[in-house]
Simulated scan of single mutants.
Amino acid sequence: MSSTTEPLVETRGLTVTYGSRTVLEDIDLTVGAGEIVTLIGPNGAGKTTLVKSVLGLVKPSAGSIRRRAGLTIGYMPQRLQVERTLPLTVRRFLTLWQRVDRADLAQVLDEVGASHVIDGAVQTLSGGELQRVLLARALLRRPDILVLDEPVQAVDVHGQIELFNLIAEIRRSRGCGVLLVSHDLHLVMARTDTVLCINRHVCCSGHPEDVSRHPEYLAMFGRHAEALAVYQHSHDHHHGCDGTVVTLPSAQGAGQDAARPLSEARRHHGHG
C-alpha cells in the first residue's frame, strides 16, 4: 500500500483477556488519514481498553495491531485530576513533558479557542476550558492520529456540540485521523465517518445512521436508543388542551413519523 492509502491504525481479531475474563474479543478496527471513527457502547464494554491497546499500553492476548511506520499519536485522556494546591498554570502544564516553542503554544491554544486561559491555574478552569487545554496538549505533538477518550466529559450540552465541531474542523484542517470514544451517538452523528458499536465484541459497525437502526444497537440501548439516535413516534394518539394523551380509536397512521429527524418530528407535533 502507498502511504496515502495505508491505514494509520489497524487491528485484526484483537482480543484482550485478564485471567479468565475476556475484555475484548475479535475486534477489527481501521482508522485512515482524515477519517473520524467513533467507538460507542455501554459502560464496561471495553472501549477504553481498546484505546489503550491502540496506544500500546495494553498488550493483546490474540490478534494483531498495525500502526503506520513513524506514526505520531496525540492522546486526550478521559479525565484529569490536578491537586488543587499545586501551583500549575496552563502554560506550565503544556510544557511539562516537552519543550514547546512560544509561537507554537500560542498557535495551538488559539486553534482550540483557549488563548485566554494560558496564564490561568489549571484547577480553576471550567470543564469546557480544561477539555480544550487537553486537546491543545494532544495537538502539540503534531499527531497523525488523535485518540480522544470521552472528550466532552464534564461539559454542558452546548459545550459538547462546540467541542465536536472543533474536532471535526481540526480533522479537516490538519488531515489527521481521529479515534473518538463517545457514549452519545446523537451528538456525533453528523461529525463521524464510521461508528463501531462494541460490547466486548463488535455488535455492529458502519455509517452512524445505519448503526442507529441496527437491531443489536437498539437491543443494547433499549428504550434510550431513540433518544440517542433517531426520533421515532407511533402516531396513535393526540393531545388534549390540557396536555393529556388521548388514544385514537384506531392506529391508522401509526409509524408515519418513524425515523423522522427529531427536529422535524417536533415541528410536526407542535413541540417547538
Rank of each mutant, 00 (worst) to 15 (best):
V133L: 09
R260C: 06
S126V: 05
M76T: 05
C204G: 04
A229D: 14
Y18S: 08
A225M: 11
A138W: 15
L185I: 12
V100K: 10
R84Q: 13
V155W: 11
V51A: 04
P249D: 05
I167M: 00
L218T: 11
M1I: 04
R68V: 02
L94D: 05
S20T: 13
V82Y: 10
G177N: 10
L39M: 03
A138I: 12
H201E: 15
Q123T: 14
V51G: 03
H271M: 12
R91E: 15
P151D: 02
I73P: 06
I198W: 04
I65E: 01
T11C: 09
L130N: 07
L57Q: 13
R223P: 05
F93H: 07
V246F: 00
G34W: 10
L139Y: 02
T194W: 15
R171K: 12
L130H: 05
R21I: 13
I65V: 10
R79H: 06
D210V: 15
L248M: 07
R92I: 08
K52A: 04
L139C: 08
Q98D: 05
V157A: 14
E162Q: 08
P215V: 13
M1L: 09
T85A: 12
G206R: 12
S234H: 12
G127F: 04
T4E: 15
D119I: 09
L185R: 09
L262C: 10
L80N: 01
L166S: 03
E129Q: 15
A136D: 12
K59L: 07
Q160A: 08
R66G: 02
D104H: 07
L139H: 07
R223D: 14
L130M: 15
H235E: 13
P42W: 11
P60H: 01
R91V: 00
V246Q: 07
L248D: 15
A106I: 06
Q131W: 05
T48I: 03
V51D: 03
V108N: 00
A106L: 08
C241M: 09
L14Y: 02
N165T: 00
L125C: 11
A45N: 03
T192M: 01
V31Y: 10
S250N: 05
Q256H: 12
A259V: 08
F164T: 03
